[in-house]
């Protein structure tokens, strides 16, 4: 039996509730949450979808660290497992947090290929060498789970801060050889709420379940943004 201490929130008050879950080898925290929902308390609310670390829905704080519930084995966590919603997000109910702002920020950096020759009537193939792919490949692995944002000290104190995930997405497209929208994105990234607010605590890279290295992406994006701003300032 493993004790699950869950941080509940019903819209008005926040409290801890404990459940005993019969854990067996191979059981994930997400399975344990489903066990609780099915056997003890059907009102327990959490977000989950794919159960295999692809969709990024089930990021939550498990024993103080943000992780994907579906990829965390219960037996690696000891006899007590503490489950809380992510920090830096507004809690809606129990383990469910408000992601609207997070997705707004992702949208704001235009995370899609921007081409001057967009022509949907006559689409044309865009070629890319493996080297060009490697320039940004690791940053495409982001599943938008919000783990990085939840530990970012800049995001903790500044609601409008773009955050590691959005800036990683921005860099991912800026570093893509097929993309022609760098200038637009540098301008977005250089807003006062953008790259300048990162002070490299690097906790985002520590917690990323996909090892995307958001801290690195933000540094690269900032360097490119700074030089692009200075170039345009000097009229080069």
């Amino acid at each position: 039996m493993v004790e699950f201490k869950i941080r509940r929130y019903d819209g008005e008050k926040s409290y801890w509730q404990s459940f005993e879950v019969p854990a067996k080898r191979g059981m994930t925290v997400l399975e344990a949450l489903y066990y609780i929902k099915e056997n003890y308390d059907s009102s327990l609310a959490f977000r989950a979808s794919c159960r295999m670390g692809i969709c990024g829905s089930c990021a939550m704080k498990i024993n103080d660290k943000p992780r994907l519930a579906c990829e965390t084995q219960v037996l690696t966590l000891g006899n007590t497992v503490k489950v809380e919603p992510l920090d830096n997000f507004k809690v809606i109910k129990d383990l469910i947090t408000e992601f609207d702002g997070f997705f707004e920020k992702l949208k704001a950096v235009k995370p899609h290929l921007i081409r001057k020759d967009d022509n949907y009537a006559e689409p044309k193939e865009l070629l890319q060498t493996p080297e060009e792919l490697n320039e940004y490949y690791v940053f495409t692995l982001c599943i938008k789970c919000g783990a990085c944002y939840s530990v970012c000290p800049a995001a903790a104190t500044l609601d409008e801060y773009l955050g590691p995930a959005a800036m990683t997405a921005a860099y991912r497209f800026c570093a893509d050889s097929r993309d022609e929208g760098q200038k637009e994105r540098y301008e977005i990234a250089s807003s006062p709420n953008g790259v300048w607010r990162c002070h490299l605590a690097m906790e985002c890279s520590e917690v990323c379940p996909k090892n995307v290295e958001p801290a690195k992406a933000v540094q690269l994006l900032r360097r490119k943004t700074a030089f692009s701003m200075l170039k345009s300032l000097l009229g080069w």
Partner: peptide
């Protein structure tokens, strides 16, 4: 989201 150009920020950072 504000996107006003600020020359102060990149210069201050460098």
């Amino acid at each position: 989201m504000e996107s006003a150009k600020s020359v102060m920020e990149p210069i201050a950072w460098i």
